[in-house]
Design a protein around this nucleic acid. Sequence first.
DNA 1: ACCCGTTCTTGAATGATTCAAGAAAAGAAC
DNA 2: GTTCTTTTCTTGAATCATTCAAGAACGGGT
Lengths: 146, 146
Amino acid sequence: MVSDEALRGAGLRVTQPRVAVLDAVAAHPHADTDSIIVAAREHLPALSHQAVYDSLRTLTKSGLIRRIKPSGSVARYETRIGDNHHHVVCRSCGAIADVDCAHGAAPCLTPSNHHGFVVDEAEVIYWGTCPACTSTHPQPERNGHV
Amino acid sequence: MVSDEALRGAGLRVTQPRVAVLDAVAAHPHADTDSIIVAAREHLPALSHQAVYDSLRTLTKSGLIRRIKPSGSVARYETRIGDNHHHVVCRSCGAIADVDCAHGAAPCLTPSNHHGFVVDEAEVIYWGTCPACTSTHPQPERNGHV
DNA sequence: ACCCGTTCTTGAATGATTCAAGAAAAGAAC
DNA sequence: GTTCTTTTCTTGAATCATTCAAGAACGGGT
C-alpha cells in the first residue's frame, strides 16, 4: 500500500508489476534484476521479465529507486535514495554494503576541473574485500585503479 | 619501443598484439574496446579481437592501463595511471573527461563506516552533461543518484 | 637453433538487456 | 458501472559485448 502511494506520488500508474517490483527492491537491497524477478513473482507469479526491466527503468527514472552498476557486476537496485550514500563492493564475491557520505550533504564532491561539464552527481564506489572473503583470502582481480 | 619496456618492466612477454594494444590505448584515451581493436589493427591487421580482450585484461591486471566502465557504457581504457584521477561522464553522449582528484593523494577518500571491508580504492565518477550536449540540450537519462 | 609454456587465432557460446507486436489493464470520461 | 484511450504488460526473438574452447604460433630462456 505504501508502494501504491509512492507510485502515485511520482505520477506513475499503479500497476501490479510495479508494486511487486518496488516491494521486492525494498525487501532486498542491492539485489540484481534476476533476484528481483524471483522475489516479485512470489506475489505475482505470471510476471514477465520484461515487465520487471520496464518497471525498474521507470522507477529509476522517477527517482523511486536507484540503480547501482559496479564494473563486472550486473545492475543492482535499492530504495534508499535521497541521502547520497555510497557503496563498498567486494572484489572477490561482489557483496555490496552502504557507506554514508563522508561529507554529509549532496553533492558531496565537487570536481576541481570540470572541463565545462555541468555536473549533477558524484558517484563513489569503494573497492575492497569483504570480511568473509578477507578470512578466506582468494586473490581478487583489480581494475587497475589506484 | 617505450611500450616494449613497459611490458618488460611489468614482467610480461613482449608480443606484437600487446604492443599494438598498449600503443592504441595510449593514443586514444578513454577509447572503448572496439576502437582499440580498429586502432591496433592499423599496425597489426591480422590481430584478433580475442587477443585484444586478452591483452587488455593482462595489461589491466599488471597495472599498465586502467579500465573504466561507467553504467550504460562499454569498457574503456586509459594509460594515465598512478595519479588517482577521476572522470566526468556525459549522460547524453557518453563523453569522458579526466578530473584531477580533489584531495591530491591516493586513496583520496576514506569511507566513514566500512562495515569491516578492507578498502583499497575509491573510484569516483561525476555524472553530468558535456559542453556540446548542454548547448543542444537533449534530455539525459538519470541513474536515480543524488 | 630448440623447447616449453604462454599467447594468439578461429569460431562458437553466453547472458544481461533490449526490441517488437499485439493483448491487457489503468485511469478518465460518460 | 461501462466505454474509451493510452500506457503498460506478455510473449518471443534479437542484440552485442564479452567469454569460452581447442589447436596453432610465438616468446624467450637454455
